[in-house]
């Protein structure tokens, strides 16, 4: 049912229905936000990545021939945009790349970070960047390990093992006394 609605929105958006496109983006906004947050940390970069992705999707929506693969298509564009921003930041030096929890207060969230946002960031904090990406793609987007492998040009066994490693690290971080 949900898939049918998404496909209908895509079809309407292709026919120039801007509101259908906006509704489509709104459906994926949380997933996009979590993904960009895992990749980029700084709020202004996250905002840029998402807004660029929205515009890229709108401009290239007619190249998506199979609406049922919209999710993978969208996240591929988002990942590319996040990577571009990361590369630009690297040129600015280490100061441009804060730690995961440092970025929370940098943009429009002065003072209190919402509890769920902090929990989200703390949850991912023990992970290295690569494992963080996999956790997001697996748990937030619901992609299969094979799809993640194709998205990130990894072997499927690597994806599975890193997910397992990620889960272990999180467990150890939150429950250090559990053997």
């Amino acid at each position: 049912m949900e898939r049918d609605k998404t496909e209908k929105l895509i079809l309407r958006a292709r026919h120039g229905d801007a509101e259908a496109f906006v509704e489509l983006m709104e459906r994926y906004k949380q997933s996009m936000y979590k993904t960009a947050k895992a990749w980029l940390i700084r709020e202004e970069d996250v905002a840029d990545a998402i807004s660029e992705t929205i515009l890229d999707c709108f401009e290239h929506l007619d190249t998506l021939k199979e609406p049922r693969y919209f999710g993978t298509w969208l996240v591929r564009i988002l990942i590319n945009n996040c990577s571009s921003i990361r590369k630009q930041n690297r040129k600015c030096g280490p100061a441009a790349e804060p730690g995961l929890l440092d970025g929370a207060g940098s943009f429009g969230m002065a003072g209190a970070v919402s509890e769920d946002n902090r929990a989200f960031l703390e949850y991912l904090e023990p992970l290295n960047e690569e494992d963080r990406k996999l956790m997001i793609l697996f748990y937030v987007w619901g992609f299969r390990t094979r799809e993640i492998a194709e998205l990130l040009h990894l072997r499927e066994t690597t994806v599975k093992a890193r997910l397992q490693r990620g889960r272990e690290k999180i467990k150890k971080s939150f429950f250090p006394l559990v053997v």
Binding site: K29, Q30, Y33, K34, K37, E43, E44, V46, A47, I50, F107, G108, M109, S114, D116, N117, A119, F120
Partner: peptide, 9 residues
């Protein structure tokens, strides 16, 4: 869980 998207974003 749903995250709060900051106003500026």
């Amino acid at each position: 869980r749903e995250l709060v998207i900051p106003e500026e974003t």
